[in-house]
């Protein structure tokens, strides 16, 4: 569980986050949504400790990240898996080395044990026979799956995903979404996904947090988001023609 209390973040005179309060539940896929420029990525980087908020506290289970010393923060980061927007795979390493990287850095097991674990997670993300290929030699969807494998190889307790579907076709995007949700449930981890893809909200949004101009204006589930009367949320949700038509059909049926 991650708890956020009154988090503020500015860059110069520009206030990006203006006092966010929320909780992200364990064993659920928690989505942060909002328009571009609403502060989603800055919020994510505050959660990860890459940005320091000027005000407010972020609790990982019982302890605030602000109260942790460098060593405690380092230990916390070993429990975090992160899926970056572009995958952020290391170009100079092949797929096997990329996935093995966190194991090499943080564990002292034998190489054969590392290899077994790497093969197991690659199999889990439905990737086989790619061990010796380099990131540039595989497709964008496969790169995302490798990045998921790298994020979960060290059995993290927290999984963060920054726009995991960007640049993917709808079918591959659904596969990635489902994979993230399955892994969350299987390992009972706290997963936070930043997205502006409404398909992801429908598929995996067990808890949805909506940001607008640095403020948390709505939170609920993927079922509730389609029923809410909140103007900002409905403007966002029904901004695409597809969802407008779905709403028209629903209204007619009602």
């Amino acid at each position: 569980m991650i708890k956020v209390e009154n988090v503020h973040k500015s860059f110069g005179d520009e206030k990006i986050l203006k006092g966010i309060n929320t909780e992200f539940d364990k064993g659920k896929t928690n989505l942060i949504i909002g328009q571009s420029g609403s502060g989603k990525t800055v919020f994510l980087k505050c959660l990860l400790g890459l940005f320091k908020p000027e005000q407010g506290r972020i609790y990982y289970e019982d302890k605030a990240i602000q109260d942790m010393d460098d060593e405690e923060q380092r230990q916390l980061r070993e429990k975090i898996g992160m899926l970056f927007q572009g995958g952020a795979l290391f170009d100079s390493m092949n797929i096997e080395e990329n996935v093995m990287f966190p194991l090499r850095m943080f564990t002292n097991r034998k190489k054969s044990d590392h290899l077994d674990r790497v093969n197991a997670v690659l199999k889990r993300v439905k990737l086989e026979n790619v061990n010796k290929k380099f990131p540039a030699e595989i497709s964008g969807g496969m790169q995302k799956r490798v990045a998921i494998a790298r994020a979960i190889v060290n059995e993290p307790r927290f999984l963060f995903c920054d726009e995991p579907n960007s640049g993917l076709d709808p079918k591959t995007a659904t596969i990635i979404d489902n994979l993230i949700q399955e892994i969350t449930h299987e390992n009972n981890i706290t997963t936070i996904v930043v997205t502006h893809d409404m398909n992801s909200v429908m598929e995996i949004g067990e808890k949805v947090v909506f940001l607008k101009e640095g403020l948390l204006v709505w939170q609920g589930t993927n079922q509730e988001i389609f029923k809410t009367d909140h103007e900002d949320v409905t403007n966002f949700v029904y901004s695409s023609d597809l969802f407008k038509k779905i709403r028209e059909v629903q209204n007619k049926e009602a």
Binding site: R77, I80, Q85, A88, F90, D91
Partner: peptide, 15 residues
């Protein structure tokens, strides 16, 4: 290039 493609962020996040 590592900075642009978030590989440095990936290292930092891993601690």
């Amino acid at each position: 290039s590592m900075r642009v493609t978030e590989q440095i962020d990936a290292l930092e996040v891993m601690g």
